[in-house]
């Protein structure tokens, strides 16, 4: 029983990062109808930026390393804005195929760039969070994943509030529903898209910064997170940002449970098989009422 509970707890905590990644992907997908295949590389970018900041110094204390989170988010938000202005703004007029190719090209290019600039070695700045854990009775909580989980929940709450209560949120939902109608009603779609991209990439930066204390940083690290993110988004259905958060947490649990009770390779295969099953049988998502076919 304890093993099961521990596996679930581990899963939820790991799932926190997946949920953060999923939120970023889902936001762009829902509002801009664009699947950003390079999202994993933006997480990777966030990780490298955070690592660079740790080079400046890590204050004493268990949570000292987390000072890098804010500056990292600021930098990645800037990158996100640049991404929109330089590329996505024009690419919005392209069809689906060019958009896929654009983000895939960016993804692979980014991995190559990281390899060339930073090398293929695995980085992990020494810090007290790595390996630290809190014990509550028989259950241990890993500090690193735990903090990521808490921030994921916090961001989910913020996202829910932002989408429902702020004017931007309402504009964004209007554009997601129908860009033409929203523009006729006076909403500046370009502005919405710019902010959406910035938030999405900033979330990727956040995920990256939260993960560097305990997860190795290397050029293709994005893959570790982005598959789960995509799957969570597909499971939740187009535009269901909060559903994708649940999806991320759920997938973390599935990964943890299959790894505990079976083996790692099967765990990976299970995730992909689940992905295929959802895509082939219910591409509109599991958490939505069946409304649209893709």
């Amino acid at each position: 029983m304890t093993i099961l509970l521990q596996a679930v707890i581990n899963g939820l905590l790991i799932g926190g990062v997946y949920a953060l990644a999923a939120m970023g992907v889902s936001l762009m997908f829902g509002i801009m109808k664009l699947i950003n295949f390079a999202h994993g590389e933006f997480i990777m970018l966030g990780m490298y930026i955070a690592v660079v900041f740790t080079g400046v110094g890590i204050p004493a204390g268990l949570l000292g390393i987390y000072w890098v989170v804010i500056p990292t988010m600021v930098v990645t938000a800037g990158v996100g804005a640049l991404f929109y202005v330089a590329l996505l703004d024009r690419a919005a007029r392209f069809g689906e195929s060019p958009q896929i190719l654009l983000t895939i090209g960016l993804s692979i290019g980014g991995i190559g760039l990281a390899q060339v600039v930073a090398g293929s070695d695995f980085k992990l700045p020494p810090n007290p969070v790595n390996g630290a854990s809190l014990a509550l009775g028989d259950i241990t909580f890993q500090v690193g994943p735990g903090i990521a989980f808490l921030l994921a929940v916090a961001m989910a709450i913020w996202m829910a509030w932002m989408l429902k209560r702020t004017r931007f949120g309402k504009n964004a939902r209007a554009v997601a529903e129908s860009r033409e109608t929203a523009e006729m009603l006076g909403v500046n779609a370009h502005h919405v898209f710019l902010v959406t991209t910035t938030i999405s990439i900033a979330l990727a930066g956040l995920a990256g910064a939260l993960v560097i204390p305990y997860h190795y940083t290397y050029p293709s690290v994005g893959e570790d997170f982005v598959v789960m993110a995509f799957l969570a988004v597909v499971i939740a259905g187009l535009g269901n940002v909060l559903g994708s958060v649940l999806g991320g947490l759920l997938l973390g649990c599935i990964q943890s449970l299959t790894a505990t009770y079976f083996d790692i390779d099967l765990s990976t295969a299970a995730i992909y098989v689940l992905f295929l099953a959802v895509l082939l049988l219910r591409p509109e998502g599991l958490f939505t009422a069946a409304r649209r076919t893709v």
Binding site: L87, L101, L102, I104, G105, L106, S107, I108, G109, G110, I111, G112, L113, A114, Q115, V116, G119, S120, P219
Partner: peptide, 14 residues
């Protein structure tokens, strides 16, 4: 130094 081929390829596509 690895990574040049994928980097150039990826950005060429962009």
């Amino acid at each position: 130094v690895g990574g040049w081929d994928v980097m150039v390829l990826g950005f060429s596509v962009v």
